[in-house]
Design a protein around this nucleic acid. Structure first.
Length: 917
RNA sequence: GGGCGAUUGGCUCAGUCGGUUAGAGCGCACGGUUCACAUCCGUGAGGUCACUGGUUCGAAUCCAGUAUCGCCCACCA
């Protein structure tokens, strides 16, 4: 597939004088789509099908969502890995998709409906779901288009939705399997109830929130007549009481016991007696249980098993009845007697007032407590007793942990393994029932005799699995699954599971699963548990956890704070590449990053820099360089600077490769930024200009070949991070043999091959020249000499490599340092006039004409340098004088110190000589 | 209550296996209309590497402790 890209002088002319990402990016994206390079077997892909496929797994964004900065960050990192793998000729699969996000989507749609004067309830389940599907059609493309605008190279032809039929089948099959395995069960347990969302929630969706509350001490009256069964049977106003403490007086209505500690002397005699629950006609026992903390409150606890987890467990131990005194909306139900119909808060107020009036409120103390709130609606979550579906996670957790312990699945960064294990070791059963409408209906059917039949068939079971009653008499569970259940199946449900598809065979397990650490439990752990259990394989090799994005002050970005950065606004203004670069540049696995205007502008400036460098290179093609693919000339036509940049470039290839391999993408971005800006633009381009200007066609051609070759390497390395800009420039570059037409499928550079191109000794010489030029610039600036003035100078270069490099690049050095030098062989000849400037480098010395500057400035500068050199000399001497250093430090370190000592001695001596002159 | 992370110039962050003089960007100061780029170029100032102790010939780096900040987990009513 040798490329015939023409290199015309128009290439540069065509390039807009200013870098306009908004013009370039959509054009480049269209080019990729046309070439069909995103699919693993895409027409334009050069994937080697014999290679191990690279499969990325991304959290599918919510279908109703808009691209936010977190999405952009995730997507950029995922895209970067896929692009690199593609350039390494691996077949790559990035299967994009959206999540139906049941509760979040209902939240959004309910808002839309409210604006239309409708509601979930006014529509009813069927019409609501129809409306939801229409809403999906409207919103679904939004996030996809936004992801594409970011330049994500996912295989869009495979886009999936967690509510599509394939996912539905995976949900049914998986649930049936878990039920058959005894891990899915229906039970009556305490669940988390959000009265606002009117559904149960998993423990993860309940946010513990600190709150200043009140601890009320309430007196309960003991029953006087042992045979009393109702309050009416008892004597009025019996004298004995027991005082309990509660933060939620309204739950008194659900009390079915009072508990004390078995060893508590204060209450020992009361155990086994009975008390009257205020407000309701109920008599309950006093029980002894070790769960009671004698030191807290009064040491006596009211037991409300229907609304408290600990109480529920106590109730089970003592065989107490469990009462739910709450309605779905959080109000008190009929069991609450006089308070039925009131909201929890209202009931509480009235009850406290009445208790106070009756004298049974003994104390009111402020109390700091933690209360559970709904992650979505912020409502106070109430524990309630319900019959719902649960998953016994312990056996699955054991497998997920084993996968990480054995190294089959790796978590990056490693420190999150501990967090992962802690959670899995203490995992509790997962309540998967949701009383919502938008989502996968639980595939469980009940017959009139309450037999449960779980079916994986789309139409449900033919008959009751226990009593064979016909399907017509069965009723399906009204509830749907927690959204995260279908998300947990994502790595394999998207590949055709439960069928043994070709995709499953080739692309499962995935290679890297990338996401933010905030959904480690919600999603990652569950994918691993479900994947290990259902497919008997790990779902992916590596878990790459990224950090969260924060504003420049380290605050979480939120709409209410108004500190959000809209990625689409950034893309429009500065470009997707700038956004991507900024996101990658500041990132490190597992660490949060701050992003603000300055980072984004810096990234845009970098793009601009690269654009202009390319414009220069393309515009400077020497006459006579033929059209068509170039060869990199070797041998005599390359100058020292060419060897230097080739050596630097090879090192960059190696370092960037290392960074990409270790997921240190921020480091890769920094390396490329510095290499392109400093090595290439600041130094090599300047050297090259001089060489291009010389009337020496073979050398001009060689220089230009190196300019394009090195630029080509940088573009390849940078492509995963800034794909559009690099693609655009690369398309205008002359090609080298054996290359494709699009950078996105061009070959990834090989460090060893690059290294072989450069002569290290010549490269070292240029390091000396750079030191010389920098030194001269410094001296001139400090002496306040006109930067444009050409100064007579004398050079005495002792280092062999530097001298050789100078001989071959004198014109460039002169131009960069703005000097008119003569080369001398002896320090005595270094005089260029009264009060000359002195520049000392490791491998030589330069003297510059003073150019009318103030001699005291020069003396100050040299004095400063001398002081610094003396300080370092003293340090080095001290170190070498230390016997144990010389004895114990490794040889090369000691030798380095000795070399340094010699160098510093010489430097000090010369500086002293110049100062005393 | 348990756990994790961070602490490096004014700001944001690099800093590998402990080893010469701790780097970069932004900001700041000075100087620049050199034909790729003012979204730029050149030069410079600015750092007790949070603190205390330890290990070591040698510590920003390893160990222990302290402080401050941030985060996660957690059924004391």
């Amino acid at each position: 597939m040798t490329d015939q890209r023409p290199i015309t002088d128009d290439s540069a002319a065509e390039m807009a004088k200013t870098y306009r990402p908004a013009d370039i990016e959509p054009r480049v994206q269209a080019r990729w789509l046309a070439a069909d390079v995103f699919a693993p077997d895409g027409v334009g892909s050069r994937a080697d099908q014999a290679k191990q496929p690279f499969v990325i797994i991304q959290p599918p964004p919510n279908v109703t969502g808009a691209l936010h900065l977190g999405h952009a960050a995730r997507g950029t990192v995922e895209d970067l890995m896929v692009r690199r793998a593609r350039m390494q000729c691996r077949p790559t699969l990035w299967l994009p998709g959206v999540d139906h996000a049941s509760i979040a989507a209902q939240f959004v749609l309910d808002g839309v409906l409210a604006a239309e004067g409708e509601s979930r309830h006014s529509l009813g389940r069927e019409r609501y779901l129809e409306r939801m599907w229409r809403f999906m059609e409207e919103t679904r493309s939004v996030i996809r288009d936004q992801q594409r605008r970011l330049g994500l190279s996912a295989d869009w032809s495979r886009e999936r939705f967690t509510m599509d039929e394939e996912s539905a089948q995976a949900v049914r099959t998986s649930f049936k399997q878990l039920h058959d395995d005894g891990l899915a069960y229906r039970g009556e347990k305490l669940i988390n109830w959000c009265p606002g969302c009117r559904t149960s929630l998993s423990d993860l969706e309940v946010i513990a929130t600190p709150e200043s509350g009140t601890l009320w001490s309430v007196r309960y009256h003991l029953v006087a007549r042992e045979d009393a069964t109702t309050v009416a049977d008892d004597e009025p106003g019996p004298p004995e009481t027991i005082t309990v403490a509660t933060t939620r007086p309204e739950t008194i209505l659900g009390d079915t016991a009072v508990a004390v500690h078995p060893d508590d002397e204060r209450y020992r005699s009361l155990v086994g007696r009975r008390v009257r629950i205020p407000f309701v006609d109920r008599i309950v026992p006093i029980v002894a249980d070790e769960m009671v903390d004698r030191a807290f409150g009064t040491g006596a606890v009211k037991i409300t098993p229907g609304h408290d987890q600990a109480d529920f467990e106590t109730a089970q131990r003592h065989d107490l009845s469990v009462l739910d005194v709450m309605d779905d909306d959080g109000s008190i139900n009929a069991l609450g007697g006089p308070f039925a119909g009131l909201s929890g808060t209202d009931a509480r107020q009235r009850m406290v007032a009445q208790l106070e009036a009756s004298g049974d409120l003994v104390a009111t103390t402020p109390h700091e407590m933690v209360i559970g709130r709904c992650q979505r609606s912020d409502d106070i979550v109430e524990p309630r007793i319900k019959v719902q579906w649960f998953l016994d996670m312990k056996p699955m957790a054991a497998r997920a942990m084993a996968a990480v312990r054995s190294g089959r699945t790796r978590i990056v960064p490693k420190r999150y393994e501990k967090v992962f294990f802690d959670w899995l070791e203490n995992i509790r059963d997962w309540n998967v029932s949701r009383q919502l409408w938008w989502g996968h209906r639980i595939p469980a059917w009940y017959c009139p005799d309450h037999h449960v039949t779980v079916s994986d068939k789309p139409a449900g079971p033919d008959s009751c699995g226990t009593c064979q009653r016909p399907a017509g008499e069965l009723r399906q569970d009204e509830d749907i699954f927690d959204t995260w259940y279908s998300s947990g199946l994502w790595p394999f449900s998207t590949l055709g599971w439960p069928e043994a598809t070709e995709d499953m065979r080739r692309y499962y397990p995935g290679t890297v699963m990338e996401t933010g650490y905030d959904i480690l439990f919600f999603w990652v752990a569950r994918m691993m548990m479900l994947g290990e259990w259902l497919t008997a394989r790990k779902p992916f090799e590596t878990v790459l956890l990224s950090g969260l994005l924060r504003d420049p002050y380290g605050k979480k970005m939120s709409k209410t704070r108004g500190n959000v950065i809209d990625p689409l606004g950034v893309i429009d203004e500065l470009g997707a590449d700038a956004l991507r670069f900024a996101l990658v540049h500041g990132s490190a696995p597992g660490s949060d990053q701050r992003l603000g205007r300055s980072q984004l502008e810096g990234a845009r400036n970098f793009g601009n820099k690269l654009w202009n460098a390319a414009r220069f290179v393309l515009g400077s093609r020497p006459e006579g360089v033929p059209d068509g693919p170039l060869d990199l000339p070797v041998g005599g036509y390359l100058g020292p600077a060419e060897h230097w940049i080739l050596a630097r470039c090879a090192r960059t290839v190696e370092e960037v490769e290392q960074a990409y391999t270790t997921f240190a993408f921020g480091e890769a971005a920094r390396l490329l930024h510095d290499a392109i800006w400093n090595d290439y633009c600041d130094w090599y381009l300047e050297f090259a200009k001089v060489r291009l200007a010389a009337e020496d066609p073979p050398r001009q051609a060689a220089t230009w070949a190196v300019l394009t070759w090195v630029l080509d390497r940088y573009l390849r390395l940078l492509h995963p991070i800034m794909p559009h800009l690099t693609e655009e420039i690369w398309g205008r570059l002359p090609s080298f043999p054996h290359e494709g037409e699009l950078l996105i499928v061009a070959a990834w550079p090989d460090a060893a091959r690059e290294k072989a191109l450069a002569d290290q000794a010549q490269a070292r010489g240029v390091d000396g020249l750079i030191e010389l030029v920098s030194g001269i610039r410094n001296a001139r600036a400090e002496a306040r000499i006109d930067p444009a003035a050409w100064l007579p100078a004398a050079l005495h270069i002792t280092d062999v490599d530097t001298a050789s490099a100078y001989h071959r690049s004198a014109a460039a050095v002169e131009r960069l340092a703005r000097i008119r030098p003569r080369l001398v062989t002896d320090q005595v000849d270094l005089e260029v006039g009264e009060g000359a400037l002195t520049v000392l480098i490791r491998g030589g010395e330069a003297r510059l004409a003073r150019g009318g500057s103030d001699p005291t400035l020069e003396r100050e500068r040299l004095s400063k340098e001398l002081a610094e050199a003396e300080r370092m000399l003293a340090e080095t001497e001290a170190r070498l004088a230390n016997e144990s250093f010389v004895k114990r430090a490794p040889g090369p370190i000691v030798q380095a110190a000795r070399d340094r000592l010699i160098e510093l001695e010489a430097r000090v001596e010369r500086l002293r000589a110049r100062l005393s002159a």
